[in-house]
Design a protein around this nucleic acid. Structure first.
Lengths: 221, 221
DNA sequence: GCTCTAATGTACGAACCAGTACGTTAGCTA
DNA sequence: TAGCTAACGTACTGGTTCGTACATTAGAGC
């Protein structure tokens, strides 16, 4: 998340529309991720900003639109990260493993984003559905997977009958669950899935799983 | 969820503590799953019951305790289902596949439960942590996995370095994500992970993935 | 049939909270 | 430097929502 740093003026208002909006988005992201959509408090967001509640309504229109804006920015960050993907110089197996690992890292580094997505699912993705921006955001990662998968399948290296979207779902499910369900899983089974000491273990597990799946010998069917 | 059927008395109060409590839990489960903890309305729960809000407080104490009670019952249902597991007569590969499929089926059949778990994670599993019942609920499935895994690893059939909890996490992550993230995934990638027409595809994908992972030849390490 | 209590209903209060009416000012432009 | 507008602040409101005080009664036990 683009953090906003302060010009450190003692007191007296400063006018900076872009900064104010960014600051509201920063704080709103934290607050929504902390408490969910209905649990989040507009007053609380305002209080933790250098501006007032009035400005939230001035710039965003309302709580609902603010949440949509938060989602839009959060997905934008992902999209940017995905555009940095540089794995296609590797052989298909290494490329997929690397891609899975980068997904793993990204999910781990953005727990607030994971929470926002969980929250959005509780609301049946209504905000995504209502957002023009998010409707056509696409996914660079998906294109990368598609190309690697094609190469691997053509060469006979990958035997699995999956397309890019399915593979993306498989990778995401592992990475997402690990972060999103960390608390219930930890409370019920006494194991912290995000324990740093186990990080490499789970990272390898993901890669092994995906590669094993893609390259397994299948029974004739 | 244990549904409550009505003795169909025309009007005039009937007294039945157990039925009233069960009915409150039924409706509360739906309402919490629908809207999240903060989005859920106690008045709404009461309205959809044959009793009044007063009784919710009489029996459960408050909204927070009601949610905990809802979670306790929901996890109880899972636990019961897991106790029905009967796969240990199969060979390890078939047993694990069958177990994964049953997890798949159970998640699909209980979307409300999935939502409750997501919601509970947004609240950092605070209710589970505060519940005596849930603290020691355990998991019969875990014991089953442990035994199958041991058999498979002893025989050299399973090469993967995982324990039961990790394998449970792997299976759950796929099943959970498919249901929990259905909405955002569908909205962003245009694919409904719970489309009945694709059900067998994803069910097979899960089994293939887990078995491929467990039985893959590993590089010496 | 009397009594006693668990079970139930009604009506209300107090706090909270999203959103707004109204007033002010920084700082750009002419 | 006058004027104008985007940017901002204050104070409030109206509806909502959790929770409760108080009143009532079904029906078990004797």
């Amino acid at each position: 998340m683009t953090s906003v740093d302060e010009p450190a003026r003692p007191n007296g208002r400063i006018r900076d529309a872009a900064r104010t909006q960014a600051e509201i988005l920063d704080v709103a992201t934290q607050e929504f991720a902390r408490a969910g959509y209905d649990g989040a408090r507009v007053d609380e967001i305002a209080a933790r900003t250098r501006t007032t509640k009035r400005m939230i309504y001035y710039y965003f229109g309302g709580k609902e639109q603010l949440f949509t804006a938060v989602l839009e920015r959060a997905y934008g960050v992902i999209r940017e990260a995905e555009q940095e993907l540089d794995v296609e110089h590797l052989d298909p197996v290494a490329a997929i493993r690397r891609l899975a690992e980068l997904t793993f890292d990204h999910h781990e580094q953005h727990p607030d984003f994971i929470r926002l997505v969980s929250i959005e699912n509780i609301h049946d993705a209504a905000h995504i559905a209502g957002s023009e921006k998010l409707g056509k955001i696409g996914s660079p990662a998906l294109d990368v997977i598609r190309r690697i998968l094609a190469t691997g399948q053509e060469s006979g290296l990958f035997t699995a009958d999956v397309d890019a979207v399915d593979l993306h779902a498989m990778i995401s499910s592992f990475c997402f669950f690990r972060v999103a369900n960390r608390h219930t899983f930890g409370a019920l089974f006494g194991r912290d899935l995000v324990d740093p000491a186990q990080r490499e273990h789970y990272r390898a597990m993901l890669g092994d799983m995906v590669i094993a799946y893609l390259t397994a010998e299948r029974a004739a069917g």
